[in-house]
Design a protein around this nucleic acid. Structure first.
Length: 214
DNA sequence: CTCCCGATAT
DNA sequence: ATATCAGGAG
């Protein structure tokens, strides 16, 4: 995909009004950080089901750091990978208090130093909570970018760097959100809705696809 | 690379 | 019945 096509792609995404059904619910950067950690291999709806209970019990890192891991597990047990995630939440809360004054840090290196926070989660927090032009490559973006032909990088982390260089700067801040929503509701993993897709004329996957009809 | 691991969509 | 879901640690 060349520069002109990439520009056209994001101009179309910016002009299309998407209508998300569910997104992570949060009220501050700490809640967003926790919600994104919980969202690994889980749907937003599943996460939104437990976070109100969790944040009512522990609205800040100081309180969450003092909770028993078992108590956190009990609250989030309806989410997959809940034992690992309960440990992450307690561990990252403890570190926020001990190393960052109880505040969510605003640099990639500091965020990644928190337990349970990898590059993808760090970049989501930087983008969504702090408005920075980062590209967090999750499973949706990894699939969408590969199909369209934006990048065929082998791993999400590699793709993240490729996209950051390849996407024009003025689209960078919102590109993350556009690609995610497109991946969730149009370019789905199973049965992609190519018949509703506004960018099929730019898509390598569509051109050699069997999903030409609905 | 494997493990983690419940809910939901298809 | 199985593929997938805002991944990260060991």
């Amino acid at each position: 995909m060349n520069r002109t096509q990439i520009t056209e792609l994001f101009e179309i995404f910016e002009s299309v009004r998407s209508n998300p059904r569910s997104e992570l619910v949060y009220h501050n950067s700490f809640e967003l950080l926790c919600a994104v950690v919980l969202s690994a291999q889980a749907t937003d709806a599943s996460v939104n089901k437990v976070t109100p209970v969790l944040f009512a019990r522990a609205p800040d890192p100081q309180t969450m750091a003092r909770m028993e891991t078992a108590a956190i597990e009990e609250i989030i047990s309806s989410i997959g990978l809940y034992r690992a995630k309960a440990g992450y939440l307690k561990g990252l809360s403890e570190k926020l208090v001990s190393d960052f004054g109880g505040e969510v840090p605003q640099s990639e290196n500091e965020l990644v130093s928190l337990p349970g926070v990898g590059l993808k989660t760090a970049r989501v927090v930087l983008n969504v909570a702090f408005g920075r032009p980062t590209i967090a490559v999750d499973t949706h973006i990894f699939r969408v970018a590969d199909r369209i032909g934006l990048s065929h990088a082998k791993t999400p982390n590699q793709m993240s760097d490729v996209l950051a260089k390849r996407i024009p700067e003025r689209f960078l801040k919102n590109a993350h959100h556009h690609l995610i929503l497109h991946g969730r509701y149009v370019c789905r993993a199973q049965r992609p809705k190519c018949h509703e897709c506004p960018v099929t004329h730019l898509c390598a996957f569509f051109k050699k696809s069997k999903y030409v009809t609905k």
